[in-house]
């Protein structure tokens, strides 16, 4: 996962509001091993495959995050509407995005278990935007996230948007997850 102060740049993939974890990784796919290097690739293959076709890759729609014969995406920044990641506590959801090559998600609000899993598992950085950018940004736009300046630059549209600081979870994001954080803090012994 990217560090808190690391600039993330790449192509945006845009989704609407209330993207639930069943849409991020449908339940039928929750059977593959996350530990097996070959099997875990399927989580990348099927990441966001539950999103209705017309709502996948807005505003145009009908764009899959990952193409049919691939395991990784050409898009590495998700832009979503409010309440991103609602529903099930399946950690396979942020893991699937990570395996597909997604590094960060920008949304005005997140569902709490998804947010927590993203951070504690060190999968993707969840950035909260001040405005709902899902109606501003187009799938394929080139974005740059500048955490220290608290802005997202849309290179394609020549616009800037504000994001909130990570706050109290910044230390866990910087450490790379809850285990790395706990080792740094001396809560659990180093390996």
């Amino acid at each position: 996962m990217a560090k808190q102060d690391q600039i993330i740049s790449g192509k945006a993939f845009v989704l609407g509001k209330n993207i639930d974890t069943d849409q991020i990784i449908p339940a039928e796919h929750l059977v593959y091993s996350l530990d097996d290097p070959e099997e875990r690739k399927f989580y990348g293959r099927y990441s966001l495959s539950g999103v209705p076709d017309a709502e996948s890759g807005l505003p145009q729609g009908n764009i899959p995050l990952v193409e049919e014969d691939k395991f990784e995406s050409e898009f590495n920044i998700i832009v979503g509407g409010p309440n991103f990641g609602c529903g099930s506590s399946r950690e396979h959801a942020p893991a699937s995005l990570d395996i597909a090559g997604v590094q960060a998600i920008i949304a005005p609000t997140f569902a709490r278990i998804f947010y927590r899993n993203s951070v504690d598992g060190g999968f993707v950085v969840p950035y909260e935007s001040l405005e709902d950018l899902s109606k501003e940004v187009h799938t394929g736009d080139e974005l740059e996230i500048h955490p220290e300046e608290r802005v997202v630059k849309n290179i394609t549209q020549d616009k800037e948007y504000e994001i909130r600081p990570l706050g109290s979870v910044a230390d866990i994001v910087n450490a790379g997850g809850i285990f790395e954080f706990a080792r740094k803090e001396g809560m659990i012994p180093c390996q």
């Binding site: 996350l34 506590s89 399946r90 950690e91 942020p94 278990i113 927590r116 899993n117 504690d120 598992g121 060190g122 997850g177 809850i178 285990f179 706990a182 809560m187 659990i188």
Partner: peptide
């Protein structure tokens, strides 16, 4: 409350969670 795999693994080892 519900948690993810990483948090569950953390509890398995430590008996604690934030």
């Amino acid at each position: 409350t519900g948690i993810g795999n990483t948090d569950a693994a953390f509890i398995m080892g430590t008996g604690q969670l934030w």
